[in-house]
Simulated assay, not measured.
Amino acid sequence: MQMSRLSTKVGRLISIAGFAVFAGFPCVGQEAAGSEPKMLATGDFVSPDAPGVHVMTFLAEFEAGASIPLHHHGGASQVLLLEGDVDVTGADGTTVSFHPGDKMDEPAGWVHSGVVTSSEPAKLIWTIVLPDGAELETLDNG
């Protein structure tokens, strides 16, 4: 299967942007350990049948104890937790615990943070449907 030049170019930009966003997050546990979250794989899909959006998928691993600060995404996404335990807290203070096999649906713009609560790393698959021009992730102060 051959990709168009546009989707190839967009794919490279999205993959680079996705890594930079995860690596750029000041993950508290990660900083202390001197390492960044591991991006094990990235993928993206641009379809002529769905103009104006990118579907991106990331396989990521976060060290035990790592925390991700308050942030939101520019598109709706879904997370499937493969390994480890993670607590996700919304801006309203509500916390939900996720365990291997659990999935979480994130509406676009939902402000939340996360922390790996297990003694082992957390591995997850994150898929997002991102409209053209929308930010993948934005840090929120507060």
Results as ranks from 00 to 15, higher is better:
83 E>T: 04
85 D>I: 00
68 I>Y: 06
99 H>Y: 05
100 P>V: 05
79 V>G: 01
96 V>F: 00
37 P>D: 00
79 V>A: 07
109 G>P: 06
99 H>C: 00
96 V>E: 09
49 D>L: 15
95 T>K: 11
105 D>H: 12
75 G>N: 08
78 Q>A: 15
87 D>T: 01
47 S>M: 07
60 A>L: 12
94 T>C: 03
56 M>H: 05
76 A>E: 15
79 V>H: 03
79 V>Q: 02
90 G>M: 05
97 S>G: 05
100 P>L: 07
100 P>E: 02
39 M>C: 08
46 V>W: 05
44 D>A: 14
100 P>S: 08
70 L>Q: 14
87 D>I: 02
39 M>K: 01
90 G>Q: 08
52 G>S: 06
80 L>C: 03
52 G>P: 08
92 D>P: 07
113 S>R: 13
63 E>F: 06
45 F>P: 01
97 S>D: 00
113 S>I: 06
69 P>I: 11
68 I>H: 06
70 L>N: 13
41 A>S: 10
51 P>C: 09
88 V>G: 03
46 V>D: 01
40 L>I: 14
92 D>W: 09
72 H>I: 01
101 G>E: 04
71 H>D: 05
73 H>M: 14
103 K>H: 13
46 V>R: 13
54 H>C: 12
37 P>K: 06
56 M>W: 06
38 K>P: 00
58 F>G: 04
111 V>L: 05
75 G>L: 08
70 L>M: 15
63 E>H: 09
50 A>P: 01
77 S>Y: 02
61 E>I: 08
68 I>F: 08
37 P>L: 05
104 M>Q: 13
107 P>D: 08
95 T>S: 13
113 S>F: 00
44 D>M: 08
108 A>Q: 09
68 I>R: 07
95 T>A: 12
61 E>L: 06
89 T>N: 03
98 F>Q: 09
104 M>V: 07
72 H>Y: 14
35 S>G: 01
67 S>T: 14
97 S>Y: 01
39 M>D: 01
70 L>G: 03
43 G>T: 00
109 G>K: 07
